[in-house]
Amino acid sequence: DTFTFTLDGIEVRLHGASEELIKTIEELLKRDIRWEELEKWIREWEK
């Protein structure tokens, strides 16, 4: 599955994202998160 969203005018596609990761990103997007914050968060998630 591919999860697609737009952040700061950039279309982002995550391939093979888990349901948990998708739900977490959706929550972060509701908080009007900035790209830099999401990028940092995703790097931490990957560890």
Rank of each mutant, 00 (worst) to 15 (best):
D1V: 13
D1E: 13
D1Y: 14
D1L: 15
D1A: 12
T2Y: 10
T2K: 04
F3S: 00
T4I: 13
F5Y: 02
F5L: 04
T6I: 15
T6F: 15
T6V: 15
T6W: 14
L7F: 13
L7V: 15
L7C: 08
L7N: 01
D8S: 03
G9L: 04
G9P: 00
G9A: 03
I10G: 01
I10C: 13
I10W: 04
E11K: 04
E11Y: 05
E11D: 05
E11Q: 06
E11G: 01
V12P: 00
V12R: 03
V12H: 12
V12K: 01
R13L: 09
R13N: 15
R13G: 04
R13W: 12
L14V: 13
L14S: 00
G16P: 10
G16A: 07
G16W: 08
A17S: 04
A17F: 09
S18T: 14
S18F: 03
S18E: 04
E19G: 10
E19C: 07
E20Y: 15
E20Q: 11
L21V: 12
L21Y: 05
L21S: 04
L21N: 04
I22D: 00
I22Y: 03
I22T: 04
I22W: 03
I22R: 08
I22F: 03
K23H: 11
T24C: 08
T24K: 15
I25N: 00
I25E: 00
E26S: 12
E26Y: 12
E26H: 11
E26F: 12
E26V: 14
E26I: 14
E26M: 15
E26T: 14
E27R: 11
E27S: 10
E27I: 10
E27C: 13
L28S: 04
L28F: 11
L28K: 06
L28D: 00
L28N: 02
L29R: 03
K30S: 11
K30V: 09
K30A: 12
R31N: 13
R31L: 11
R31Q: 12
R31P: 02
D32T: 08
D32F: 10
I33Y: 05
I33W: 07
I33A: 09
W35L: 10
E36M: 09
E36R: 09
E36D: 13
E37H: 07
E37Y: 07
L38N: 00
L38T: 00
K40G: 08
W41D: 02
W41V: 12
W41Y: 14
I42T: 02
I42N: 00
I42R: 02
I42Q: 01
R43S: 09
R43E: 05
R43N: 08
R43F: 08
R43Y: 09
E44D: 11
E44L: 09
W45K: 03
W45Q: 08
E46D: 12
K47C: 11
K47N: 13
K47I: 14
